[in-house]
Design a binder for these strands. Structure first.
Lengths: 188, 188
DNA sequence: CCATAATATATCATTTAGATATATTGGTCA
DNA sequence: TGACCAATATATCTAAATGATATATTATGG
């Protein structure tokens, strides 16, 4: 049996702490709301869920007849699970792991034409522009919920981080384009 | 034999394109200068180097007697390797993968005391503060090289990106601390 | 009522990360 | 001089994470 002592376990526990979920929903949520700082694949989620149950940190309920049910398995957190989550939250977070392929390509830019990089940077700017918009959308939605009395401070903070990250990346890319273009002019 | 068609191959080619290197030096360079946007482990580097040689994209020279040589294997890129690198540079970069564990913990903050988060954020701010300084140091070093006539535009751009990312993260964390503290006051 | 998109679970082959084993060399300091 | 430690260097193994795919059901739109 696989060990699976990575972070996936805690992500899932954290999500189940809010409400019971299916593996599929967990995946969708991470894609939609966490994607700017975390990602998980089905290959981790489904085995992790089984492991959580076997460790007594979650329980599974077979809801074959509920509403939109298609043999879906809904998982809920246990008290032991909450304890495990709480203990992990106290531990110092590990240093973040990033893989920005565009930076790799910029770094090796001397091995291609500047136009290639400028093209990649254009795409990158457009993408980050859109992401900033998305994150601001989340911010507003959370703000509206707050007015209604639902506290979303922590979720809102992660959206805010998205705004900061994506804005910074966009600004950098704009600056990078300028510098590369100027360099071109100097040479030509 | 393993397939190994990931990105490691191209990172190594990109580095060898500048100068011949040993696996160990490649690892050190990535740790020192690329760590804010990329990481590789020995478990990828050494097998990848062998694969590059077997594919004719690099050649290895056994320098057992050179200077500080301890049976070190120096790898150089071939013309085929340069072609491969150049082709890859043209491809659209993949979407970046990030894992910010601190954001996960902030997101699940409702399951612990605010003080725990504030503590993590303090560490995070300190770390990013230092990283901004480091990146600015790199910037200056590259600027000095430029004055001497050595063109480091592309490396400098990645350092600049580091400045942007780490500054943004620090600013966000400062803001996050404020918001969490205010929330505390409101409740208390 | 058919096609298609979304829901849902599951697994497999790669790819990546992290830890460790091993050995040599260079420098320090008692 | 030798004892010791840090840095250099190659290599491999386990575990974790990714990406792709197989399979089936249900909801909905025309």
């Amino acid at each position: 049996m696989k060990e699976n002592t990575g972070k996936s376990k805690y992500v899932i526990l954290g999500m189940l702490a809010r409400m019971p979920l299916t593996g599929y929903t967990i995946k969708k949520w991470i894609e939609n709301e966490y994607s700017h700082f975390w990602q998980e694949s089905y290959g981790q989620i489904y085995p992790s869920l089984k492991k959580l149950v076997s460790e007594g940190l979650a329980v599974s309920s077979d809801n074959t007849g509920t509403g939109n049910g298609r043999g879906q398995i809904v998982y809920s957190i246990t008290d032991a699970g909450r304890k495990e989550l709480s203990d992990w939250l106290r531990e110092e977070p590990e240093i973040e792991k990033l893989r920005y392929e565009i930076l790799l390509k910029v770094s090796f830019g001397g091995n291609t034409e500047p136009e290639v990089l400028l093209g990649h940077l254009d795409d990158f700017i457009r993408r980050n522009e859109k992401l900033v918009k998305d994150m601001n959308g989340y911010m507003e939605r959370f703000e509206a919920l707050k007015v209604q009395g639902t506290d979303c401070t922590y979720s809102q903070l992660t959206a805010l981080c998205g705004v900061y990250i994506y804005s910074a990346m966009r600004d950098w890319a704009v600056m990078a384009k300028e510098i590369i273009s100027e360099k071109e002019v100097d040479l030509g």
